[in-house]
Design a protein around this nucleic acid. Structure first.
Lengths: 201, 201
DNA sequence: TTTGGCATGTAATCCGTTACATGATTAG
DNA sequence: CTAATCATGTAACGGATTACATGCCAAA
């Protein structure tokens, strides 16, 4: 019945963007993603154009030349079948994420670094995270104001709040980490060797 | 001078693991990563064995058969040159991360989902995040206890704290999001169409 | 007129996981 | 004896970014 298995996550995400944003060109899709969901999702042209093509061949989107534009634009629109598939995908529990974090790994390995560099990374990380959170708080206000009454507003705000809370948590962690390692003056033996293997979770 | 550019992140991460854990086989490396840094880093055998080989050919690690084992194990150890390269890498500012989050994307698109499913995903997400945080808090206690006095302890604790604070933030966000969208009863027009394009960040 | 942005697409490359193939050792 | 685990490696595949190639339209 459900042919969800035939589609990659990128394709389903594009389907969602088209459902949300209406008829769009591949170029538009890119801009839309950058402007709205870039905090937690990204797609490049190398994904978008082939994906739109596959979605079209399976009947989940249809395309037509854009008559409103002087340029030669091909706009894509989601079909009823596309909406059904999107609904099926949205009903599936999201895959658990296992992102890599270079900054946490470097903190974990801080004992092997030149003294001070880890704190420096953490300060940068904290200030960027703080700035991001503040920026997103303004976005939240704007989105609330410009979309008052929209039935999607609560979902949009919820997704923005994710960025805010996670950014604040990153900043809070970085500050805490600076405090934790601040008392330690990393020392190395002559060749910097370290034989400890006792850390286990 | 610095030949950092020749190495992939995976290879440098393995170098860090070898610096931290001492002489290890590829199999050990895998187990070590799973046991210690799996919250924020992962490597598969398909990466590990070729990576160890490349590191060896560049002189950053050396290997020997393990005489202490009845099995035919090849153990790898970081060299002074390896430590130097590791130090250089640790001094470089971590690459900014841009992880994808399926759960946030599905929340953003919640208006196009069957009523109730998004809340359900968020409840699952929150309970898993809460469980994870609680588990990591116990890990923190254990690690503190078993490694009291170790000069690496503060760095290890800092990395565990990242998992705790981020998990707590994920749970807090999910609860907040449930509240935000709880008041909304998603309604669709006859074909579920939605023409709004006004969301911009 | 020339630069920048619109617009589409492909090729190369990188990075990573999964599956497979193989075999030895050890615990039950 | 036999199942689980230790141990090493490769091949296939998937997914994503970057760079490249091309060209048109609009504004300065």
């Amino acid at each position: 019945m459900s042919e969800l298995g035939w589609f990659r996550t990128s394709e389903l995400a594009l389907l969602g963007v088209l459902a949300q944003g209406g008829a769009m060109s591949g170029y538009d899709v890119r801009a839309y993603i950058k402007a709205s969901v870039s905090q937690f999702w990204s797609e490049s042209f190398g994904q978008i154009y082939p994906a739109l093509d596959r979605l079209k061949r399976r009947g989940l989107v249809k395309n037509r030349r854009d008559p409103a534009s002087a340029r030669s634009r091909m706009v894509y629109e989601i079909t009823p079948r596309g909406r059904k598939t999107l609904r099926e995908w949205l009903a599936k529990p999201p895959e658990p994420e296992r992102p890599r974090s270079e900054v946490i790994l470097k903190t974990f390995l801080g004992d092997h670094a030149t003294p001070g560099v880890t704190e420096e990374h953490l300060r940068d990380f904290a200030s960027r995270a703080d700035a991001r959170a503040t920026e997103l708080e303004q976005v939240e206000v704007e989105v609330r104001r410009q979309n008052a009454g929209s039935k999607s507003l609560a979902y949009w705000v919820a997704s923005i709040r994710a960025g805010i809370l996670l950014s604040r948590a990153r900043a809070a962690w970085a500050h805490e980490a600076i405090g934790l390692i601040g008392g330690v003056q990393p020392e190395r033996t002559s060749d910097g060797h370290n034989d400890e293997r006792s850390f286990r979770q």
